[in-house]
Design a protein around this nucleic acid. Sequence first.
RNA 1: GCCCGGGUGGCGGAAUUGGUAGACGCAGCGGACUUAAAAUCCGCUGGCCAUUAUUGGCCGUGCCGGUUCGAGUCCGGCCCUGGGCACCA
Length: 867
Amino acid sequence: MEDLYKPEDIEPRVQKYWDEHGFFRVAESPGADKFYCLSMLPYPSGALHMGHVRNYTIGDVISRYQRMLGKKVLQPMGWDAFGLPAENAAIKNQVPPASWTYQNIDHMRMQLRRLGFAYDWSREFATCDPQYYRWEQQMFVRLYAKGLVYRKNATVNWDPVDQTVLANEQVIDGKGWRSGAPVQRKEIPQWFLKITDYAQELLDCLDELDGWPDSVKTMQRNWIGRSEGAEFALSVCDENGTLHADNLQVQVFTTRPDTSFGMTYAVLAPEHPLVARITTKAQREQVESFVVHAAQEEDIERMAEGGALEKRGVFTGAYLLNPFNRKPVPLFLADYVLMSYGTGAIMAVPGQDQRDWDFASAHGLPIVRTVQPPDDFGDGPYLGDGPAINSEWLNGLEVDAAKEKAIQWIEEQGIGVRKINFRLRDWGVSRQRYWGCPIPMIYCETCGEVPVPEEDLPVVLPEDVEFMGVQSPIKADPQWRKTSCPRCQGPAERETDTFDTFMESSWYYARYCSPGADSQIDERANYWLPVDQYIGGIEHAILHLMYFRFYHKVMRDLGMVRSDEPATRLLCQGMVVAETYYRDEADGSRVYFNPTEVEVERDTQGGITGAVLIADGKPVTVGPVEKMSKSRNNGVDPQSLIDRYGADTVRLFTMFASPPDQSLEWSESGVEGAARFLRKLWRNVSEHLQAGSPAKLDLQALNDKQRALRRKLHETIAKVGDDVGRRYTFNTAIAAIMELQNALVRHPDKGPQDMAVAREAWRAIVLMLAPMVPHVAEDLWPRLGGEGAVVDAPWPQADESALLKSTVEIVVQVNGKLRGRVTVDADADRERVTEMALAEENVVRFIGEKPVRKVVVVPGRLVNVVV
RNA sequence: GCCCGGGUGGCGGAAUUGGUAGACGCAGCGGACUUAAAAUCCGCUGGCCAUUAUUGGCCGUGCCGGUUCGAGUCCGGCCCUGGGCACCA
């Protein structure tokens, strides 16, 4: 065995061994326990960043651990290959988006292989492959047939100069990022998926996702935003209550029907269809002037500062008749009512609603309370509980009872119904971009919209294109879109929009289970699904993870899968952060320096006193710790770390520095610490092997010291198993292994039984480290007499008998303060322990003359004497 | 404004069910080895005070209060900080 730890030799050799034996290729094995461990697939941006390394290391550790428990483990990897950055790169570098993407995939695949992740590469795919997206297109036309797909006008960001739709990220200060022209809001037809049909189920199933973080479930609940109430009609009238000649009505939704007697005015959203019937052109223009102004920077800033938005509005001249008290109330237009939620119209009850209060105050409208606030309640709307007042037949009822009675009354009157509304909107999937999956629809002059027949799929996106401007090549090319109608054979045109890239990432996990299938997925998916552990960033808490759940339920309803949810357990890893360093230049600009270019200065206590730029030796300002980003120039390239330290060191550092769900602070010296640990491990095992062959372990022959060391070993095995398997606190698992190694080093005896215990310990250490640092573990395992590959070795189990202690140390407190320790027999009873505790020298001193009032005994832990 | 996290040494973090606060690592200090440096090894390392064969005391987990024999952990009220949402009736 070499004296020095050389990862540059070990890692390629071990990876070759895994590859040649195809260790990570898995097949279904009915009856065997399976474990599907999935990390979110990366966008092929060009190179791995530390966030990827962290995400995939966590997944790999869990996968390898589960495999050592004897399960069939599926861990796949692929590429979320469509997306906007490829188009930007295409414009910048004059290469087609496809070739740029494929090059990036090649490079990043090589980087992932270098890190030694246990992926079944035979299942790899890129989502831009027609053999992948053809199934997405097929599913879309099937959903169209089921009525879950529809087309309607929706508002987009439109760049009038580039004649293109912009993504939200491409709108900077209200202007197009390339043209600089003010962005317009434009209505164009777009395709939608009816995710709202699944709103209730998406909400209900969250309750059963015990393995998901509460934060994600809460965010999804809020996003779905269920509210219960009533929807009812109000008749348009004049100020005397005379009904409108056309018998016009306005539907409103409210969660507080109990407050209806307090309605003092009503509001329509500016886009409400009735607006054209009841307002003048001048009124509409006035509203438009502030609608255009809406949702601008200053409003958002004001809300961030905690202030209420200005309540702008205009009186229509019309009135609505409140059906509860037959009184007419003025009808306003105001942009604080949204057309996209509820009915686009509200009854306003300023006494019980903050926004209505603000509007009423600003426009001098009356305010009537319908719930009695407590005596000490000041000004403002009252949102709490209390008896109804000013409400005729509801008076005296508490809020819940009043709500119930009001809804019954509405239904009895035939003017409305009990209603549940969701905040969740249907999913708009059209993107006016080139580098995406073509939407398989055809427009025929006579037949209208016609889905592409399944046998004609896929609609292939041409990859060898000139991509010079922002304009999509398939939109620019009149030939591509020209086709014939599948129904009438007449001239027709293809849809030139492409899918939102969230479409590809909503079902990829199922395709991994069915490689090569001549259908979207096949029966093999039901063996592997649901995913047992999903790992990815918290930034996907709402969008991706909602679409992912929605798609799974849709696939279930199409008969493709049998489970209700796609993943039973979810882990959201924290951000990777690093210190920032900068200088403020004379011209007011701030220049950031990478942590690798800076040297930190410390005082004798180790506190940071400053930092200098290595290049010029002059000081730089130490900024806050922030998420690694280009703008702060604090990103660290994982490749350079791997080149310098090896994959195992990088993996060990990322797992050791913090628990997986908290942020990980990058530290050069922390990486060096990880490297030092592996060098020590290597040397210690080497010295152990050179010290000779161990005797057969004879438990009866162990002396106290050997027995104590072996107890430490088995305590560590128990703790590490719990940390890795249940708690996912890999940092504390590694710390426990480090402690065990330190204990072994401090036990230098080389007798036959010392060697036997040491051999047992080194083997356990190598096994417990194998998921985290698999290369060095694989290399050391056979040297320590291990059979076969460490990837298939069984996870060590604690020997209960080794954990038994003959004596235990008991902490003695007096009035809750630590005053001494006593060692007692493990089976000593309370009386004996109390007696020992009261006899301890320092305890006696503290009790002094004071009478003992009470003695609390926690068996095996402590005694507290109360005086 | 609403919702969800977090606040513990010089730093990252540990303390799993209310029971020894600071495991493990980093940084720092002292020493060994070395011509020297690196690497490696050993020791010390929350603050203050007393005592030095020794050890002991006081303070200490963002702030204020409470429950308890006992609180980093539970409860009430604040402060700071990270993230999410955006007038959803």
